[in-house]
Design a protein around this nucleic acid. Structure first.
Lengths: 347, 347
DNA sequence: TGACGAGATTGGAACGTTCCAATTATTAAG
DNA sequence: CTTAATAATTGGAACGTTCCAATCTCGTCA
């Protein structure tokens, strides 16, 4: 039984008013009398009316849809980011298109086009590796607000929200130096990304500041995943002069490094210090709990969404580049707190 | 500079044809002459035309949007499920609305309503805890195809795709029994869910089949998360007669159980056998690699999307209840393969 | 009493597309 | 050369909403 669609004129007829009045109550206008508003509302409920946003946003240009495109939803950092965005966007009465690009530029192009066709009123993008300003040019030319997260793109002319990768890496390395480490590695990540570049620069600067050299052999790239971490630490342990500590590109790599250490019968925290980056949700509950640079993905999604909504409401806003502060969360994986840890667990 | 929207009549004028013809080339009709098609296409490119789907789907009822609502996107199982859905949905020319309910019924109601307003042509739902058939009634009455995943709802009258939880649990417990375990616990999960019920029943049936009793003290619920796993194993280790093995509600719990074991200086795999459920992506790379019942979330998302698309194309299809087969993937965390593992790593 | 203004309500045009029926141009058959 | 059939193209109505300008109904004030 293919039901006929119920439209505003149906409910207008049922309530004995005009469709204009119905439209007014739908948007909560103050112009309409309490009594008629009530009448209309019961008609709406009785007929099971569902609002047709396609029609509405054909008339007015504002769509109540925002798009979010992420490069790897499988990575829990991005999943949490999406959750953060979802929360604020939803409570602002918007709904989100979410698309996963799997780091494929072509896919990204397609989904952005598709989102434009659907009339999204703003876009949050965590760009795929290798995205260039030119890829976004038609989008920004159309005047749709865009917020880049996690990875910035030079000269794209849009807002961005990235974490303070340099400062985070500096803080992490300082901490390791204070703990007495002298051979500190930087493990994981693709060297051709801006994020890698920033974190690695922080690593180098902190070492230089401590009067230490930064031998290239201690910088070992890999896929930014758990599996990548395993291979990176294996490679590091092949060196004649092995490192005693590592700053990892991200938490996933750090977990992989822990796995790799255990495979060699080394206990992360006690025998080798490891620090991650991002502070994903598992970092706290892992054993040993991961010392990491907290980026708070959910909070970042939250802020990105706020920024986007602000720009949507403001019409044509100037691009802002926000650097999100970051803090080192010291837990057990970098050693030094071993006594406290044992005490906690036995209590 | 607020650009004027470019519409089909603009490009019709530019190409010297009528808007009807433009519409025809837009939908790739065979009716239009090659030469005019080409003319129209260059006009489209030159004017930077973007198709307005709102307008299109106001006229025709088919929307090219499907919705997916999940109860916890933070859990990588669901994130992977969403990725699986995204892949097939996208290559079918659809785009997905994704919403996260965080297990809140109210949130779920809102997002489903919102998706209906946006005219989704189908919905994949992993229902929040406590969802009842009545909650979905208005949705199914409207005739929109719905596929339930992961969690089924009795008498909802819609299709469902759930994994064979009972058979998976049976296989896992049989495996532990064959390895000589006699005290086997069931750890984690909320007891009031259908999934818990099915897995637990499989656990009981397999024990009974082996002529073993199933003391209630060995069944310990918790949040279905890593942290929940830690508390569950702690509780299990308080017992006078400790278990020597555990089937966990899901992989997240299993990881937590491993964490908790290590905190007690017990090595998962060697000193205590643990089996998970779901086979999330980290299960393979963890150390020890997790023995688990493989549910293949991405594949499940894939199949759910296929099923939904089939129903969308078929118009009004009969609800199907698909039980997705499941297999036990034996890795290192349940012991018995310890020698092989050492060999692998030293090679 | 008439004019005025505030408060409510309303009809109709407009948004950008698709679809139908109708038209024109082209070719083939008689 | 006419007619029929086929291939291309087209104008206009329709989809369900919003918005504007217009109207209607009161009560109030001079």
């Amino acid at each position: 039984m293919a039901k006929e669609r119920v439209t505003v004129v149906d409910i207008a007829r049922a309530a004995g008013v005009s469709k204009s009045t119905v439209s007014l109550v739908l948007q909560g206008s103050a112009l309409v009398n309490e009594a008629t508003r009530a009448k209309v509302n019961v008609a709406i409920r009785e007929l099971g009316y569902v609002y047709n946003r396609s029609a509405a946003n054909l008339r007015q240009a504002k769509s109540k849809i925002i798009g979010i495109v992420v490069n790897d939803l499988t990575n829990s950092f991005f999943a949490e980011l999406a959750v953060g965005v979802d929360a604020v966007v939803q409570s602002a009465g918007f709904v989100q298109f979410l698309a996963n690009t799997s780091e494929k530029i072509e896919r990204q192009r397609e989904v952005i086009a598709s989102m434009r066709e659907h009339g999204v009123s703003g876009l949050i993008i965590s760009p795929a590796r290798g995205t260039e300003a030119a890829d976004l040019a038609p989008l920004v030319a159309s005047g749709i607000p865009v917020v880049l997260v996690v990875r910035d793109i030079a000269d794209a002319g849009v807002s961005s929200l990235i974490s303070d990768n340099h400062a985070g890496a500096v803080a992490a390395v300082r901490h390791l130096v204070e703990r007495g480490h002298r051979r500190i590695a930087f493990l994981g990540g693709f060297p051709d990304t801006a994020v890698f570049e920033a974190r690695m620069r922080g690593y180098r600067d902190a070492l230089r500041e401590a009067g230490m050299s930064t031998p290239d052999e201690l910088i070992i790239g890999s896929a930014p995943s758990r599996a990548g971490g395993v291979t990176a630490i294996e490679q590091a342990m092949m060196l004649k002069e092995r490192p005693t500590a590592a700053l990892c590109f991200n938490d996933a790599v750090a977990f992989g490094v822990c796995d790799g250490l255990r495979a060699r019968r080394l206990e992360p925290g006690a025998d080798f210090a490891v620090i991650g980056f991002d502070d994903v949700i598992e970092a706290k509950t892992a054993v040993p709990a991961l010392t990491t640079v907290s980026v708070d993905p959910q909070g970042m999604g939250d802020r990105a969404a706020q920024l986007l909504l602000k720009q949507i409401n403001a019409g044509r806003a100037e691009p802002e580049a926000i650097i999100s502060p970051v803090r080192l969360v010291v837990r057990q994986s970098c050693g030094g707190l071993v006594e406290r840890r044992v005490k906690e667990i036995s209590s």
